[in-house]
Amino acid sequence: MAIPLKAARLCRLAGRTVTSLSASQTASLPERRCYISTSTGNNLQFKLNALTAHSSLDLFKKETGIIYRMLGLDPSRLPDNPERFRDWSVVFGDEKISSGRHYFEVTVKKSQEFRVGVADAAMSREDCVGTNSSSWVFGYAQRKWFAMTNNKIIPVTLVGKPDRIGILLDYEAGVLGLVDVIQPTIIHTIKAQFKDPLCPAFGLWDGEMLTHSGLEEPEGLK
């Protein structure tokens, strides 16, 4: 059974305090997007979109990796644009997905608190991934795995913490899967009805993570 939790308990805020958060908040985004293209086939290839990155996140390794900085940059030193996450340590991939079946992996061995998944490209930048109906993520915190969307958590049973995980998205089937890359098998799925273009989405509250895209889907996943 899904367990609702308040967003203030789920996301760590860098430098500010949020007293309330509504999942119905929306951001007014410009017509011109800073994404590369719309992906409709397999072998999703993306980098991280620096224009969306919260001020506590640094990108590295040709914009495929993220490092969390507890203090971060002074937000006033960053370009002011409506694409950037202002309150939460979140960054999007620079590719939009509107159809197809896609697979990517993330190295997470240097972080103990993170979220990985997908979100509507036009999701409110006032929200954190997982706290609204526009994002679907798998997360790790307090040595426990969970699936999260619309501010509800479902525990995911895993043995230990792998160094690397896979994410499988089937847009038409409305499925997001967490993949054990060693087996490989799908450990847990989130069911949804995707209607709008999606972006790979990442939240990070300590350490670092590295994304790996342009991969073939492992054989045997259904």
Rank of each mutant, 00 (worst) to 15 (best):
Leu204Glu: 03
Pro162Val: 03
Glu217Val: 14
Val18His: 08
Arg33Met: 08
His188Leu: 01
Pro218Leu: 11
Ser37Tyr: 13
Ile67Asp: 06
Ala27Ile: 01
Ile167Arg: 05
Ser134Ala: 14
Val91Leu: 04
Lys161Leu: 01
Pro162Leu: 02
Glu172Cys: 03
Gly130Gln: 05
Ile3Arg: 11
Ala201Arg: 08
Ile165Glu: 00
Arg12Gly: 15
His102Arg: 10
Ala27Phe: 05
Tyr68Ile: 06
Thr211Cys: 13
Phe138Gly: 02
Phe60Lys: 02
Ser213Asn: 04
Lys195Phe: 11
Gln142Asn: 15
Val129Ile: 15
Thr107Lys: 06
Phe202Trp: 11
Asp163Thr: 04
Lys195Gln: 14
Gly100Glu: 01
Val91Trp: 01
Asn150Leu: 07
Gly177Asn: 09
Glu105Thr: 02
Lys195Asp: 13
Asp80Gly: 00
Cys199Tyr: 01
Gly174Arg: 02
Phe60Tyr: 12
Ile97Asp: 03
Thr26Gly: 07
Met1Ser: 15
Ile187Asp: 05
Ile66Gly: 03
Leu221Ser: 07
Val179Tyr: 03
Leu169Met: 04
Gln112Asn: 15
Arg77Ile: 08
Arg125His: 07
Leu5Met: 13
Ile186Tyr: 00
Pro162His: 03
Ser39Met: 04
Val137Arg: 07
Ile165Ala: 01
Ser56His: 08
Ser20Gln: 13
Gly65Lys: 03
Asp170Gly: 01
Pro30Tyr: 11
Ser55Leu: 05
Leu204Asp: 06
Ala201Thr: 09
Arg32Trp: 09
Gly130Phe: 04
Leu59Pro: 02
Gly139Val: 11
Trp88Asn: 14
Ala173Gly: 06
Val106Asp: 02
Leu48Thr: 01
Lys161Trp: 01
Asn42Met: 08
Gly72Thr: 09
Leu215Arg: 08
Pro218Gln: 08
Phe114Gln: 07
Tyr68Gln: 03
Arg101Leu: 12
Ser20Ala: 14
Arg84Trp: 12
Pro4Phe: 04
Ala14Cys: 15
Val91Thr: 10
Val137Cys: 10
Gln142Trp: 09
Gly130Val: 06
Cys128Ser: 15
Ala8Cys: 12
Ile66Gln: 04
Lys109Val: 03
Pro4Val: 05
Pro4Cys: 01
Leu57Asn: 00
Leu59Ser: 03
Glu216Tyr: 03
Val90Ile: 15
Leu13Lys: 11
Ala2Thr: 11
Pro155Gln: 12
Thr107Phe: 08
Glu126Ala: 13
Pro155Arg: 11
Leu59Val: 01
Lys61Met: 04
Val129Gln: 11
Ala53Gln: 01
Ala27Trp: 09
Phe146Trp: 07
